[in-house]
Amino acid sequence: MTVIALVSAKSSGVTTSALAMTLSSTRPSLLAECDPAGGTLRAGFFQAQITAGTGLYHLAVAERAGEDNLAQAFADHLVRIDASGNRQVLPGLTDPAQAPALERSWPALAQVMRVLSDEGGYDVVIDAGRLALESGRLHTTLTPAPLLHGADLVLLVVRATDQSLALARHMTEPLRNELTDRGTGADALGVLLIEDGPRRPHEVSEALRLPVMAALPWEPDTAAYLAGTGRTPRKLNKSALLSSARTALGHFQAAASRRTLHQQYPSARPAPAVPAAPQVAGVLQRLGQGRVDPRV
């Protein structure tokens, strides 16, 4: 289906938004917590029930032993967030000091996520965390740049406040350049607006010179539950946040499809195509074991 990477200039609700989309997807979905600054789902949403023995760091260790080991480890380090196994999470780093070990593993992980989307029919949501720059480019250690390069869409998550816009404004040009030079094109970049503040979507779009591709309502009770700091809301299944996240995913999928069609024309800049190694593609078989068909 789609690979969507969420980033921010500063804490703007990236993880909560990514989790909301993963939970609300009508298809098999995966949330990959790939913030080099460390993950928060383990201590938050999962309430410390997942140990450091499970998660992203172990994939870097496996990748060094070969792609077949990476495929096996990827499936082994996912955590189910529903009984069917159709919604899963790859927990993030427990210590930012682990980030350098992943620098050489990001390209292989990007391939795995591409396979899950293109061949497995997954909605893949990447929590890429807060952007870090070095000499006007994405920092090679503190940002998982290869995951952004391979994503169908890269969404800059901002709140509807002047402060959030001021911080995000400095990130738009480096992101455009990065996606133009190494990704699938600058048109992959857009904004996911968190409606926590007075600014309206057209104001945000004008300020950042980017399209606002979707907006999520500010719903404190549901957001606190997803962050692990609040109780389960009584009417979680009727949550405006989850409903809007489901609608947003539909918009993203449509936008990704339009981009794919556009890239098929000779005049369009083709997306970089890297065939997945058979060992990497084998992750689908491992993930399919025990998963329930969501259409049943």
Rank of each mutant, 00 (worst) to 15 (best):
Ala166Asn: 10
Pro294Ala: 04
Arg169Cys: 05
Asp196Arg: 13
Leu249Asn: 00
Ser84Glu: 15
Ala168Gly: 01
Arg269Gly: 06
Leu226Phe: 05
Ala75His: 07
Pro266Tyr: 12
Ala268Arg: 03
Glu219Ile: 08
Val14Tyr: 11
Leu189Thr: 00
Thr51Asp: 14
Val7Asn: 09
Pro270Asp: 10
Thr229Glu: 11
Phe252His: 10
Val212Thr: 04
Gln88Tyr: 05
Pro146Phe: 05
His251Tyr: 15
Lys235Trp: 13
Lys235Met: 14
Leu241Val: 03
Ala75Lys: 01
Ala186Gly: 10
Ser257Ala: 15
Ser8Trp: 03
Ala168Leu: 00
Glu103Met: 13
Thr51Cys: 05
His77Arg: 01
Val14Leu: 09
Leu226Ser: 10
Val115Trp: 00
Leu31Ile: 05
Pro270Ile: 09
Pro96Ser: 01
Ala151Gln: 05
Ile50Thr: 02
Val14Pro: 11
Ala75Tyr: 08
Gln285Ser: 14
Ala186Phe: 02
Asp35Val: 06
Val124Thr: 08
Phe46Trp: 15
Arg114Leu: 14
Ala83Gln: 14
Val79Gln: 07
Asp76Pro: 00
Leu193Thr: 03
Asp293Leu: 11
Thr16Tyr: 05
Pro294Gln: 06
Leu138Tyr: 08
Ala60Asp: 04
Ser205Lys: 02
Thr172Gln: 13
Pro272Ala: 11
Tyr265Ile: 11
Ala48Asn: 13
Ala9Lys: 10
Leu179His: 04
Ala32Gly: 09
Met213Asn: 01
Ser84Arg: 13
Gly39Thr: 09
Leu193Ile: 01
Leu6Met: 13
Gln47Tyr: 00
Asp35His: 12
Gly39Leu: 07
Ala83Ile: 07
Asp82Tyr: 00
Arg176Asp: 07
Val158Asn: 04
Thr40Trp: 06
Leu242Cys: 07
Lys235Thr: 14
Val79Ile: 12
Ala145Val: 06
Asp123His: 14
Val280Ile: 15
Ala43Leu: 14
Arg286Ala: 15
Arg259Trp: 03
Leu193Glu: 10
Asp35Leu: 07
Pro275Leu: 05
Gly282Lys: 12
Thr54His: 04
Ile126Arg: 03
His262Gln: 12
Ala97Val: 11
Arg231Lys: 13
Ala20Gly: 05
Gly121Asp: 06
Pro201Phe: 03
Ala128Gly: 06
Arg231Ser: 15
Leu287Asn: 11
Glu33Trp: 04
Arg182Gly: 00
Ala110Thr: 06
Ala5Thr: 14
Gln111Arg: 12
Pro278Arg: 12
Thr15Phe: 01
Asn177Cys: 08
Gln289Thr: 09
Thr222Glu: 01
Gly44His: 08
Gly290Met: 08
Gly38Val: 01
Leu287Glu: 12
Cys34Glu: 10
Pro96Asp: 07
Pro275Gly: 01
Arg258Asn: 15
Ala73Cys: 06
Ile4Met: 02
Thr143Met: 06
Ala254Cys: 11
Pro266Phe: 12
Ala110Glu: 06
Arg295Ile: 11
Tyr265Thr: 15
Leu23Tyr: 09
Gln47Asp: 07
Glu33Leu: 04
Ala255Gly: 01
Ala188Cys: 14
Gly136Lys: 06
Gly290Thr: 07
Ser11Tyr: 02
Val283Ile: 04
Gly85Gln: 00
